[in-house]
Design a binder for these strands. Sequence first.
DNA 1: TCGCTTCCATACCGAAGGTATGCAACTGGT
DNA 2: ACCAGTTGCATACCTTCGGTATGGAAGCGA
Lengths: 208, 208
Amino acid sequence: MIPSARPTARRTQAERSDATTAQLVAAAQRLFGRDGYATTSIVAVAADAGVTKGAAYHHFEGKAALFHAVFVREQEEIAAELERAAAEEPDAWSALRRGCRRFLEHCLDPGFRRIVLLDAPAVLGWETVREIEYAHTLRVLTGGMRAAAAAGHIGDGDLDVRCQMMFGALCEAGMLLARSPDPASALTSVTAEAERLLSALAGRASAL
Amino acid sequence: MIPSARPTARRTQAERSDATTAQLVAAAQRLFGRDGYATTSIVAVAADAGVTKGAAYHHFEGKAALFHAVFVREQEEIAAELERAAAEEPDAWSALRRGCRRFLEHCLDPGFRRIVLLDAPAVLGWETVREIEYAHTLRVLTGGMRAAAAAGHIGDGDLDVRCQMMFGALCEAGMLLARSPDPASALTSVTAEAERLLSALAGRASAL
DNA sequence: TCGCTTCCATACCGAAGGTATGCAACTGGT
DNA sequence: ACCAGTTGCATACCTTCGGTATGGAAGCGA
């Protein structure tokens, strides 16, 4: 008998497990992003993934663990996107600016805002959130900052603290951006303020 | 018969109502601040206030409404504190710096962090949170910024956007501060970074 | 004094997170 | 190829909690 004649028959355990976990995370990302963590039930996520509660609780310790997986996935996506954007720029300084702009653009996605900026701190706690972000988004940002500092663009001081504060300002700007009646046009002005802030941080008050 | 011979007897309706609402808000502020919104039940708050669920649902539309009241109270407290601190300074620029430092100090309170910085966006939504903050904390901050701008300390640009981003950076710095092993000593270094950021925003890159 | 409203407690309901159980599919050894 | 043993997952159940309905006691206007 030919294996996988029908896609459901004769799958290995790892295949089944990976498939359902992927389905669950994808469904959770959609529903958490659309309706928020609190109003999204486990059964709804499971149903959207084509399974039941049992599968969800078999693969994840609970609702928060499922959200944790979604958050990590979200971070991996944005970090990869930022690195791709930064790689297109010739020097460290323009890469840093390009990354900030890219982050703001990414904030136009409602699911990202809901999961990463709104729910994550309350669900996972600040420590966990920043730990994960420090391995993804903040890693890219601090990397860009260090590169810019090595190129002599950045003034002295505590770079880690400065990156965190810059990051907080960017998140705030992202929410502000998305809230505006015309986000597409607001993107330019908010980006301008962000770049001004960046230039200011770098000790180049009139770089723009 | 003498009114209020015993404190419980012969109180007017408004008195009873005000007393229980105050008790409920105070209890909610304590429990939400200590255990977080999600893990704090209405009955726990009511019991801590010395009443039952019925009283809570009589005075508030639901759990979120109770949290809303707590959040407004937090904002009123911090705004008053900031205005008091700013009033002690001679000029607009030092008042602005003093206010930022004061805000960071206030972030050392775990209840404040939990309620205002962690839970509020998820529970009330970003729009509601910023609307309330714009009437309190952000009002004081933008007021200080405008005063500093009028005194010629601040460069041109969108002041509202800049205040929001500065506020985001301050919130982030507050969390970072509280997370550090020795918050009291970290306060000075984080404050230094914040003032540097402020100076940078003002177009005075070497003001500190 | 007497309807009427306000304040609040008790009883109840439904939804949702989490657990226990059971069964079917896969796996590894013989 | 067969057969323990494990894994993947569904179903049934429990508990907690937000929210509602009901009832009664305390003030209030007339």
